[in-house]
Design a protein around this nucleic acid. Sequence first.
DNA 1: TTGTAAGCGTTATCAT
DNA 2: ATGATAACGCTTACAA
Lengths: 340, 340
Amino acid sequence: MKHITIKDLAKTLNVSISTVSRAFNNKYDIKPETRDLILQKAEELGYRPNPIARKLIQQRSFNIGVVVPEFENSFFPKVLMGAQEILHDKGYQVLMMQSNYSWEIEKKNVETLVDNKVDGLIISLTSENKNNSYYKSLIDQNIPIVFFNRTVDDIPASQVLFDDFKWALFATEHLIMQGYQNIVHLKGSENLNLTQNRVSGFQQAHRKHRVKPGKIIPCGFRTKDGERVAQQLIDNNEVPRAIFAANDSCAIGAMNIFKQSGYHIPNDIAMVGFTESNLAKHIHPSLTSVEQPTKDIGQTAANLLLEQIANKGIFVPQTIFLNGRLNVRDSSINHLQKNV
Amino acid sequence: MKHITIKDLAKTLNVSISTVSRAFNNKYDIKPETRDLILQKAEELGYRPNPIARKLIQQRSFNIGVVVPEFENSFFPKVLMGAQEILHDKGYQVLMMQSNYSWEIEKKNVETLVDNKVDGLIISLTSENKNNSYYKSLIDQNIPIVFFNRTVDDIPASQVLFDDFKWALFATEHLIMQGYQNIVHLKGSENLNLTQNRVSGFQQAHRKHRVKPGKIIPCGFRTKDGERVAQQLIDNNEVPRAIFAANDSCAIGAMNIFKQSGYHIPNDIAMVGFTESNLAKHIHPSLTSVEQPTKDIGQTAANLLLEQIANKGIFVPQTIFLNGRLNVRDSSINHLQKNV
DNA sequence: TTGTAAGCGTTATCAT
DNA sequence: ATGATAACGCTTACAA
C-alpha cells in the first residue's frame, strides 16, 4: 500500500470515513474516546490527511506565499524572518519565492502561489506601475495581500512602508549639518516609488536649509552601479565633497572606486548610504546609513495579513509606516569642521 | 461566478469536459481547430486549470521544494539562484522554506512540501545525524531528494558536496607557508560533517608540514560566536599569531574584537575564514577566505534532481564534489616575512 | 454520536 | 476525434 488514506484508516477501525475526518477536525461532534482511538491508530499507521484533497474542497491551505525580488542582500531575508515568526506561531507555513527582479518571474511566482491556494500573500514588488491591474484583479478576487516597501499606487491593499522621504531628508540633513554643500545624490532604480521618495527627501532637505543641492545622478541599487558612476565622476572631474546614495551597495561601490583612485573617505568625500547593509559597520571606513526596522516590517506585514484573513470580506486597507534610524559612522564625519 | 472551471468552459463551448482537458494536455488526440477554439475561449474567460485538482489526481505538481537553514548569509541565496535558473528553464516553480536552524521547523517544512506533492526536494540540513531515519523514509517513498553541503551519512541519496577537508587543508597550509605556527582553529557547529571535515583538514595540514597545531576551540558560525571566543582568548592571555576560522562570520566577529583591543590584523594576528561572505573583500583588512562555487552547487543539485525525477524508480545515488578557490587577501599576509 | 453520500476540479479509461 | 464516467482523498450537509 503506497499511501494510506482516510478510507484505509476507516476500514481498519471499522468506522466511517466521516468519523475519521471528524477526529482530525475537532470542531465536530465526536466521542472523545473514538477520536483518541482514531488519532492513535493514525499515528501508528503513519496516516496524515492529504492537504491537497483538503485544499480542493476547502479552498484554503494554511500556507502563506511570500514573493520578494531577491535574497542576496540581507534586507529581505531579515524581513522574512520577522514574518515567518508570526506566521509559524499561528500554524501557517511560509512558501517563499524570489522574482529575481523580473516582472515576468514575479507574476509566475504569484500565480503559482495563488493556484496553490495560499491563504494570503506578502509581496515586495520588483518594480511598480506596470502591474497595477494584475494585482487589482487579485484583490478583486478577494485574495488577501499585503505589500511592503515596494508597492503599487492606487490600490486598495494594506501596505507596510518605510518613510523614505523622511529618512532621505534626515540623511541629507546630516550631511548638510556637517557643513557639506553641493551634495550629490546617486538615485536608485527607476519606476519605484521609493526611489522618487528618496530623491524628494534629498531635495527637501536642501530647501529646508536653503542650500543648493548638487547633481542627482541616475545610478541603481547594485555595487557595480555605484562603481560605474564614481568612475564617471572622476573621469569628468566632477568628484563632489559629499554623496548621498540610494542604498548601501551603491554607496560601497562608489567608495571602492574613490578609494582606489586615492581619494580619502570622508576627508575628500563624505558618503551616506541607505538601508543598512551587513557591510555598513564592517567596511572601512564604516558607512553611515539609514537602518530600516526589518524584523518589524515582516511582523507587521504578517499581522496585517492575518487580520485580513480573519476578517475575510470586510476589510479596510491600512498603510502603516514604521520608524527607522540613522546610524552615523565614520564615512560622513567632517573632521575638518568647516564648510566644504 | 467566482471561479470559472473546466465545466463552465465546456458548457459555454458545447463540448465535453474531456475535450477541454485534452486541449490543455496536448498529448491526447484532439482536432487542432477545436483545441485552438478552446484555448482562445479559455483565455477570454480567464480560465486556468486548477492545479490542486490536477495534483490530486496526478500526484505531481511541477513544483520543487527547497529547504535551507537560512537566507541571511549570501551563501544559500546564491545557491538557490543557481538552482532556480535551471528549474525555471524546465518549467518548474521553486518553493523555498527556511528552517531557521531548527530541526523541528525543518521537518515541518519538508512535510509541508511533501504534502503539497512537490516533485522533488533540494535540502541543506540544519544539523545532521539525528534525522537520518526521517529522510530515509522519504527516500523509501520514492521522493526525489538531493542534499547539498549539509548532508546525512549512510543514506542512498544524491549529494552535491564541497570538499571541506581539502579546502580547510589548503587554507591552513597557506597560513603555515606564511610562516605561522601554533595556528588556532575556531571550530564550527557540532553535529555537522562539514565541521569535522574542516577540523580534519586543519589537522592534516599540520601533519603534512610537521608543525604543531594550536588549540581547536569550539566556536560556531555566527559573528557573535567569534566575538565571544576572541574575548576569551584575550582574557586568558592566549591570543595566537594566526587563526583559521570555520567561516567568515566567525572570523569577522573575532577580528572586530581583536581590532577593538588594539591588535593589528595581520601583523599581530593573521586570519583566514571560510565560505567567502559578501564582507570578505570589503572589510578592513580584507579577509582571506575559501570561496565555494555557490551557483554551480545550485545548478548541479537541480540537474541531479531533474535526472532523478526523469528516471523515476531506477536511480543511482551520486555524490558530486565541486571545486573551490582560496582567495588570499590582506588578513593573512605575513609582512614580517619570518616565522612567528 | 455516527454513517451516507454529494461534491471539490481535474485526469484517464473506455466507449462511441 | 469526442463524450461519459469513474477515480483522486477529503469535508460536510443531511439522515439515522
